Amino acid sequence: MNEFAIGGDLSVHRLGFGAMRLPTESGPGREDSIAVARRAVELGITLIDTAHLYGWGANEELLAEALYPYPDDLVVTTKVGVVRTGDDWKYDARPDSLRAQVEEGLRRLRVERIELLQLHRIDPETPLADQLGALRDLRDEGKIGRIGLSEVTVDELARAREIVDIASVQNRYSLLDREYEAVLEACEAAGIAFLPWRPVLGAASNATAGIAAVAKELGATTAQVGLAWLLARSPVILPIPGTAKIAHLEENFAAAEITLTGEHLERLGS
């Protein structure tokens, strides 16, 4: 199954694209970034992930330049909750700050509604009810379609769901990094989309002999095996691998066509 309905009604291809690595400075690098974003859409990717943190809005502006007006089936999800403080940054999910970040995101992305808005990190200095209450208000106003979280524990997810409906969780997870296995299982039980970030780094750069052997048998790369494993691991997983190169983008997207057998999955430790 290559489609998943986030929040039960927002259908996207299960293999998305993370835009964090795209250079945004003017020049050839930016031109290449625009080409990569456009190629992602051409391939059939319908979920692109960005954030206020990525260039302090520059990444959002880049995607708008590359893709606006957006195809009807394209979801550009962004994240808020981290702000710049001079040359540094800090968590800031106070209601007024979240509202300002969302308004900036709407302007930069050139939209009236962000279909999936994720809290980049829970702010330890602000009551969770205040943070999620602000996002719920923005959702009720029609500026947000669905609310997601990022880098949360099982307990934090449970507490958040007592306050507002949660449509997605974006935690670090891959074939070789399963720290948040329990969070994935909680998402699967609740039908919540799980967007693993850094989904292939471990498999690509530190491939074990077992992963390399499976890749060789399939005529695939270890990174592709890592992505195929994620897609097979759970129907709620929507990997968002990022790259600044079209060749890598195409390689990643081709992983959706790789079928791992039960024997392959057993060898990979499923």
Rank of each mutant, 00 (worst) to 15 (best):
T46W: 03
T46M: 05
L47P: 02
I48E: 02
I48P: 04
I48Q: 02
T50K: 02
T50H: 07
T50S: 12
T50G: 05
A51Y: 07
A51L: 09
H52I: 00
L53R: 11
L53F: 15
L53S: 13
L53I: 11
Y54K: 09
Y54P: 08
G55H: 04
G55L: 08
G55D: 08
W56R: 12
W56Y: 14
W56S: 10
G57N: 05
G57V: 06
A58Q: 14
A58V: 00
N59F: 06
N59C: 14
N59R: 02
E60N: 11
E60S: 07
L62P: 08
L62W: 10
L62Q: 07
L63G: 08
A64N: 07
L67A: 07
L67I: 07
P69G: 09
Y70R: 10
Y70V: 09
P71L: 02
D72A: 15
D72T: 12
L74T: 01
V75Y: 02
T77Q: 15
T77N: 09
T78S: 13
T78D: 09
T78Q: 08
T78E: 06
K79W: 02
K79S: 04
K79C: 03
K79M: 05
V80L: 06
V80F: 07
G81I: 05
G81H: 05
V82P: 00
V82Q: 06
V83S: 03
V83C: 00
R84S: 09
R84H: 08
G86A: 06
G86V: 04
D87R: 13
D88S: 15
D88V: 00
D88W: 11
W89F: 14
W89G: 00
W89Y: 13
W89L: 00
K90A: 15
K90E: 15
Y91S: 10
Y91I: 00
D92H: 08
D92A: 11
D92V: 01
R94E: 14
R94Y: 03
P95L: 01
D96S: 13
D96W: 00
D96P: 00
S97I: 10
S97M: 01
S97T: 15
R99N: 09
R99S: 05
R99K: 13
A100L: 12
Q101Y: 04
V102L: 15
V102D: 04
E103V: 11
E103H: 13
E103A: 14
E103Q: 15
E104Q: 15
E104T: 15
L106T: 09
L106F: 11
R107H: 13
R107N: 11
R107F: 05
R107C: 01
R108N: 14
R108W: 12
L109G: 12
L109K: 04
L109S: 10
L109M: 13
R110H: 12
R110D: 07
R110S: 10
V111M: 05
V111S: 06
V111G: 02
E112F: 09
E112R: 13
E112S: 14
E112Q: 12
R113A: 05
R113K: 15
R113I: 04
I114T: 10
I114G: 06
E115C: 07
